[in-house]
């Protein structure tokens, strides 16, 4: 895609200046604080769940990650289904979007939304509409890093 930075004519530039002056600025600092605390709280809940699995079941620190993530996803599923998650998301922003809860919400909300188009072409196709890039670029970057690591270790003979 060509990066065309269209040159704006003076009228447009003038209007954009007026528009910018009137534009409600996003409260970035407050948003960051909210995201930090809510995100931290989500991680805290995750740690509680993890410790729960370690103490009451035969999971080690290494293996407790899987059931923890699964539990968080189930919690997100209920919150999304009951229509509560989007309000939390509006408040927290990145705080709920960055942890696995954000990914789960993206998949679950898309799945709920497209039920009207059927289960295969509707839910099946559109479920990963928002989460697709996460999967594509996550796998791709993991591949690249693994490649780099392999090449480096060959050269440095570690």
């Amino acid at each position: 895609m060509t990066n065309k930075k269209k040159k704006l004519n003076p009228k447009a530039q003038h209007y954009q200046a007026i528009q910018k002056k009137n534009e409600t600025k996003r409260p970035i600092f407050t948003n960051c604080l909210k995201a930090f605390f809510v995100g931290g709280f989500v991680c805290f809940i995750g740690q509680l769940i993890s410790t729960f699995y370690i103490y009451f079941f035969d999971f080690t620190e290494q293996t407790a990650g899987n059931p923890t993530v699964a539990t968080l996803i189930i919690i997100t599923m209920f919150l999304t289904g009951f229509g509560v998650y989007d309000h939390i998301g509006q408040f927290a922003g990145a705080g709920t979007a960055v942890p696995v809860t954000g990914f789960a919400n993206a998949v679950i909300s898309s799945a709920i939304e497209h039920r009207t188009e059927g289960y295969i072409l509707g839910v099946g196709t559109n479920m990963l509409k928002l989460a697709g890039p996460v999967i594509v670029y996550g796998v791709f970057s993991a591949f690249i890093i693994a490649l780099i690591k392999t090449i480096f270790s060959q050269f440095l003979g570690s």
């Binding site: 409260p27 999304t80 927290a92 919400n105 928002l130």
Partner: peptide
């Protein structure tokens, strides 16, 4: 976005 998506909308 889907109705239940938790994305944060800007004040505009």
């Amino acid at each position: 976005y889907p109705t239940e998506y938790g994305g944060q909308k800007p004040p505009t």
